[in-house]
């Protein structure tokens, strides 16, 4: 009978590694959340643009990112940036690749949110004398972001799960740290089980929070 042992957790060296892992995971998640959202917003605007070129580019951007694996996108940046003479820390490469990758999902969600704001909303706002900018700022964005909130959170959860892929380009995030520890203590079952539970807890926590927030901001159109 196999006996589980989590003794390695008491080793301060490994605690230190895990701490580093958590920090890197948080850093990558944080920046990708912001950049992924901003890029997504910009591409969503492009896809609604009157200019055919911008619409085409936006559509291709989303199609391409969705129809190729993130791991390949990550390796692409990791291998090709140095080739262009750009030497970056793997953490930064991860942030670049993952921001771009999540922007595709965010773009589609934001676009759906923008489409939820029908023409009559724009007309009403215009008839009240709001300028285009004021209409976007006070009517369109508040409504579309509320509509998009839930799927955005689910993209965010996805983002957190995907950060684990970054260990493949030597980033010591949660998964990377676990892999290093496993290499020393050879307790793969315990370590990866623990990791699995940890990720589940994080996503569970986020979905709890998001449900509470959604209850506050939910609107019926």
């Amino acid at each position: 009978m196999y006996r589980l042992s989590f003794r390695f957790l008491e080793n301060p060296q490994y605690q230190e590694l895990l701490k580093e892992g958590v920090i890197n995971t948080l850093i990558i998640t944080f920046f990708c959340l912001i950049f992924g959202f901003l890029i997504g917003l910009i591409v969503a605007m492009m896809r609604r643009s009157k200019m055919k070129v911008l619409r085409g580019f936006g559509a291709f951007w989303v199609d391409f990112l969705r129809n190729t694996p993130f791991l390949v996108q990550l390796f692409f940046f990791y291998h090709s940036l140095p080739r262009l003479g750009i030497e970056l820390d793997p953490v930064i490469v991860s942030i670049i690749a993952l921001s771009i990758n999540t922007s595709a999902g965010n773009c589609e969600v934001i676009r759906a949110g923008l489409m939820a704001v029908k023409k009559s909303y724009y007309e009403c706002a215009a008839a009240l004398g709001l300028s285009t900018f004021q209409t976007v700022r006070h009517v369109v964005l508040p409504i579309s972001l509320r509509v998009a909130f839930k799927p955005l959170v689910s993209n965010f959860v996805n983002l957190i799960l995907t950060t684990s892929t970054c260990f493949s380009i030597t980033v010591v995030e949660l998964m990377g740290a676990s892999k290093i520890i496993n290499g020393r203590v050879d307790r793969p079952f315990e370590i990866y089980l623990l990791l699995l539970v940890a990720y589940c807890c994080i996503t569970f926590l986020i979905s709890m929070i998001s449900k509470a927030v959604d209850r506050k901001i939910a609107i019926t159109l």
């Binding site: 009559s120 909303y121 007309e123 009403c124 008839a127 009240l128 004398g129 709001l130 004021q134 006070h138 009517v139 508040p142 409504i143 509320r146 901001i217 609107i219 019926t220 159109l221």
Partner: peptide, 27 residues
Amino acid sequence: CGMVFQHTVIFPHLNVMENLIMSPMKI
């Protein structure tokens, strides 16, 4: 010229009071 439509939109993210005071406050 204030305008009201057949299908007027009361902005769904604002309550009645906020709907009323938004444009005077912003404009």
